[in-house]
Design a protein around this nucleic acid. Structure first.
Lengths: 335, 335
DNA sequence: GGCGCTGTTGCATACGAATGCAAATGCTTT
DNA sequence: AAAGCATTTGCATTCGTATGCAACAGCGCC
């Protein structure tokens, strides 16, 4: 049978002090005599007392909890982010409440849970938020930070890597490598990351007097990307380069080219991805890609959330962090 | 400035009823007249009222929260588990509080946070728990379920796949394929998964009159596994097969063999993994492996936790779920 | 019209810890 | 020894919701 937990009241009785005194022993800044504190801590230890965080949250009006909404945990890039974010917030005494939500409809129901949970802040990892929900959070004074996603509403903060210039670099790199029939494999149609990468890429091509040879949509999904690859290579003339909007899809492209079409990377086709996930460095792929600064992005998001929580102001800032081109064998200069 | 949230009291005033009535409108089983309910819901909607889960938890003594302790989120196998678990618990109205903990020392500090958080249950995903901590949970009546890890204490439940027979199958498969110098690449030295897989594997070899040719430790880590592979292949005579305790390491083995030693899989060396992560199916690897029933394991863990929470009894059951051999090109019969 | 019954409602209290305020304690100073 | 000051302590209240209990309304039935 579940026994009732030890309360500060019981500890107080054993230690021969008041409940307030016990409470003060567990608040860092409270005034308490060392002698009393020792007595109380001894009693607490004897009874196995742990302060009840729920009761504390109720009175302090702060749950020390951040709600994280994720769309895809199968993408190692976001798994890494989550892991790092968890550690980061743990350091600051905050805990993560995890929610999975694939589509916008699910997000609505999830947000309802989040608002009830009294989370002090919301971190959206590649998840989309309707502006009505964003509005509600802002109205309630709950800071929201979106990573790698945009919402058209003032008041929510956004952290993203410089997708545009990442795409721009890829465009330059491929043209300068001598590629002439360059294809683009998009991610989710409505994602800001994909469209920004695309735009930078297209602008780079244009500046070099080139144009995109073909486009397809891979939904940031392995199987969809494979199908898209088959489509891109179904014409008589093949592309000689593919820029996939993320590494996950780039890997799918490489595998499909090698296994199904008997093509060599980079000899027959150059492939470039985006993210620099661990797999990209594996000997089998050696994927040229654009590295997103995971830790810097999370650090920035953490700072924004904690700052806004501390100040009580939701400010809706926008941070763009620089990316780093990583040249590996899948698309080298001068190929 | 953070505004104070709307309370049931305010809703009650607007609707012209008592606070209790408002409360009853948000408890599914409470008795409330349809007419009253409509009035209250209208008022609630007008004010944007959301029940405060913290206050509710305090009075009901149930946070509807499960603490999840994970050791490695970079292993896609556990990322998948987490994602599925999150959805599963969400369905039952429970939320996940995520904690990362690499070593046992960190786990101690994390457990302190968990106990304070008043989580209704604890799910350990490939994380280890000292028996003193396990004891404390049991004493408090908090159910604990460990997935793929063992703790030597009565009262915590354990869900694992049949590691022994998985290893056993691998042993048989490799011997029957004609391999003669079979190496084993272990995971973490103290993990039950690794040692059970090893034991089944060794027993299978022994039954076929064979023995393990060499062993090394890869710590379930990519880089460590690469180093271990180099060590295994530093002698004059190479192994002709490697059984890695998980896919992650098996991939590392394959990459190292191909890229650094110029060896072919499976022609020169057969490689077998464990888990059947998505990567294992990719054309570049075609990894023969043993599939763990992720969803069944999580379902079982969910059922155990929710069952024990509902009954208030912590029972410490032990479930072993069957695994499925997956034969792909990296180690085929009759090679 | 009174009786009993089912279904609703409000009252009052409880959950466990934090904190403003006033009382009390301990220590220094003259 | 008394006054003055700083520190410590306890009292009482608060957070927002759930729920046992009693009161009560409405209804059917005899």
């Amino acid at each position: 049978m579940k026994k009732r937990p030890v309360t500060s009241q019981q500890v107080a009785e054993l230690a021969g002090v008041s409940q307030s005194a016990v409470s003060r022993c567990f608040s860092p800044k409270a005034s308490i005599a060392p002698k009393t504190k020792a007595k109380v801590l001894a009693a607490a230890k004897q009874l196995g007392y742990r302060p009840n965080a729920i009761a504390r949250s109720l009175i302090t009006r702060s749950s020390r909890t951040i709600a994280v909404v994720m769309s895809q945990l199968d993408n190692p890039f976001y798994a890494q982010m989550l892991e790092y974010a968890s550690r980061r917030f743990q350091q600051h005494g905050y805990h993560l409440l995890l929610f999975m939500s694939s589509d916008e409809q699910e997000t609505t129901s999830v947000m309802s849970d989040i608002l009830q949970s009294q989370a002090d802040g919301i971190l959206m990892l590649a998840a989309t938020l309707s502006s009505s929900l964003a509005k509600e959070c802002v109205a309630r004074g709950i800071p929201v930070v979106m990573i790698n996603r945009t919402v058209a509403f003032e008041g929510v903060s956004q952290v993203a890597s410089d997708n545009y210039h990442g795409g721009y670099w890829v465009g330059c790199h491929l043209v300068e490598s001598g590629c002439e029939r360059i294809a683009f494999l998009a991610g989710l149609a409505d994602s800001s990351t994909s469209s920004q990468r695309r735009q930078g890429f297209l602008d780079a091509l244009a500046e070099h007097g080139a144009a995109c040879w073909a486009e397809a949509i891979g939904d940031y999904d392995f199987a969809t990307a494979q199908a898209a690859t088959r489509a891109l290579f179904s014409r008589d003339v093949y592309p000689d380069a593919v820029f996939a909007a993320n590494d996950h899809m780039a890997i799918a492209v490489i595998d499909t080219l090698k296994a199904e079409l008997g093509l060599q990377v980079p000899q027959d086709v150059a492939v470039v991805g985006f993210d620099n996930i661990p797999v990209a460095a594996w000997p089998s792929y050696q994927l040229t890609t654009v590295q997103q600064p995971i830790e810097a992005m999370v650090d920035e998001a953490t700072a924004l959330l904690l700052g806004q929580i501390a100040s009580g102001q939701v400010t809706g800032e926008r941070k763009v962090l620089p990316v780093t081109p990583i040249v590996r064998a899948s698309a080298v200069s001068g190929t």
